[in-house]
Structures are given as C-alpha cells and as structure tokens.
Amino acid sequence: MTPSDARLPILAGVAVIAGQAAALFAPPDQVQGELVRLMYVHVPAAWVAYLSFAITLGASGSWLWRRGPGADRVAAASAELGVFFTGLAITLGSIWGKPTWGVWWTWDPRLVTTALMFFVYLGYLALRRAIVDPVARARRCAVFGVAAFAQVPVVHMSVLWWRTLHQPPTILRPGDPTIDHAMLAALLINLVAFTLVFAVLLRARVRLAAAEDALEAAADARGRELAGDAVSAPKLAGFGV
C-alpha cells in the first residue's frame, strides 16, 4: 500500500470518529429524546445505498458504451455495497421503529419500496453469480443495472407520493432543511464519514475483483497449449539421445 493509498482509510477513520462524536454531542429530540441518535447512522446508510446504486447505474451505462472491464467491476462492487447498506438502513430503521411506532415493521410505502429495492439488487447479485462467461455477465448485468435504478427515485419519492408514517424529506427538499441546525451539522458529518467509508470499501472491492480476474486469466493461460507445442525439435542422424 502506497502512502497515497493509506490516506483515504485514515481520512475515513477520522471522519467516522468525528461523526460519532458529533452524534453523541448533538442535542436530543424534543419528541423522540435520545432515540433520535439512530438518525445519524440510519440516514447516512440510506444515502450511501442510493449512492451505490447510482454508481452501479453509471458504471453499467459506461460498460454498455465503452465495454471496459473496469466499469463492470465498479458496477458489481457498488451493487454489493448498496445491498449491504440497504440492509443496514432497513435494520436500523426497524430498531428505530419499534420504540417509535410500536412495531418492528409496518406496511409503510417507504419501508415496502426500500425492501423491494433490496430484493431487486439481490436479484442483480444473483444474476452475476449465475453467469460464468465474463462478457455475457457484464452485458446482462449492465442491462439489469440500468433498469433496476428506476426503483431508487420511487423509494425517495414514496413519502411524498403516498400517505406514510415515515417522515418526508428534511434535507433533500426545496428550501431550508426542516431540522435543528446542530442536528443537521452532526448528520452532515456522518453523511461525509459514511461516504468516505463507502469509498474505501468500494476501492478495496474493485481491487479485489481485478486481482480475482487476473488470477483467473493466469490460471486459464497456464492450462492452454502454446502455438508450436506440437512441433518437436528435428533429430539429426548420429546425434540421437
């Protein structure tokens, strides 16, 4: 690892510590009390999930346009992380929902559409695992990666399109955010921290995928016959061994 490679994880680590400190020192909510601190991990997890799927969309589009293997690796790695962070957002939301709404799960449009998004991208990962040929895998998954992104705006807008228990957007909305500014600052620090952690994980996963591809290519090359293998050296009379 070069010094420049180490900068990003260090930066992410510092940001995570700062984010957690900000979350602890932020004021409690008037209604929810200390429970509101779950927001500082739940919202960034959901944001990183959106970001992951947007990167999968961009990388998938890039693969369809330029056919570079790097784009396919980025799309796959980002989708894996997106599924992880979606699962994390659902789990944290469920933990937050139990004391707030009285249930672990409710048939709320935001929850249902988020769960559907989770399953759509699980399907994407299942599709990747089912295809052996790398080019066919990249092509088919790029198509699905582009189509699947339609789910993301539906999840974000679900709280506006339908009547819902979940609160409407407080930051990504026109006008001044409807949140206390000290809380907003803590939330923004955590958003940055989660984004940096995502960048670290994405870079590591893409490198791992590149190493796996190189290993596979080397294994293929080892077993392959070379041109001229079948031709033996001429034997001259009197020099036989």
Partner: peptide, 8 residues
C-alpha cells in the same frame, strides 16, 4: 433466478 428478477 427469473422469478427473483420479476417479482419485485
């Protein structure tokens, strides 16, 4: 795999 892709 197909139902997993279609159902959601």
């Amino acid at each position: 795999l197909g139902p997993l892709l279609v159902a959601p």
